[in-house]
Amino acid sequence: MKGKIKLLWTIFFTFLKISPVTFGGGYAMLSLIENEVVKKHNWIEEKELSDIFAISQSIPGAVAINSAIFVGHRVANLKGSLAALTGITFPTLIIVVGVSHAYSYIQDNRIVNAALLGIGASVIALILHAAYTVGRTAIHDRTTLIIGILSLAGLLFFQFNPIWVIVGGFIAGISICKLKVFKKERFSHSS
């Protein structure tokens, strides 16, 4: 029992340490997680962790947080996953609440507004760069290019609800692939 509680604390602190040092999105966290989980604590083998990373990207949510939940669950079930989740979100939560509170006092300050404007421009670059990174693997033929363009156009010009864009992509992906398989089969039968 004592060992179990100690393990939970270790999981909590492991992810607590990783959390506040990662800027610029989840992918930066992954190598830190690997270092702690595989090399330092030997909780999981490298192969399994790369599976966890892959799955964490394909379910909703932030990839680093999903990975933390997965690792916690793998090491110590439900309690482990909660310990990991709390560890990885707690420091940033405190930081964000702190900044949020401070911001309400300084939001009319000219220096703060000037700095935020500059940061805004570079965040746009970060977002576009992320689009490029995802796009490189996501858009690789004419069909995926069309799905991408239609989604963007629907959002920009017709105020589509983003949720429906994702649902639309889901339906399009399955139906187009099934149609392609169906066509191929029919073609190979007739020839």
Binding site: T137, L150, L155, P162, I166, G169, G173, I174, I176, C177
Partner: peptide, 17 residues
């Protein structure tokens, strides 16, 4: 795999938007 074939480009649209 088929679902993500469609979801991923939709996400690219979302991010660019």
């Amino acid at each position: 795999i088929q679902a993500f074939y469609g979801i991923k480009p939709a996400i690219v649209g979302l991010i660019i938007y």
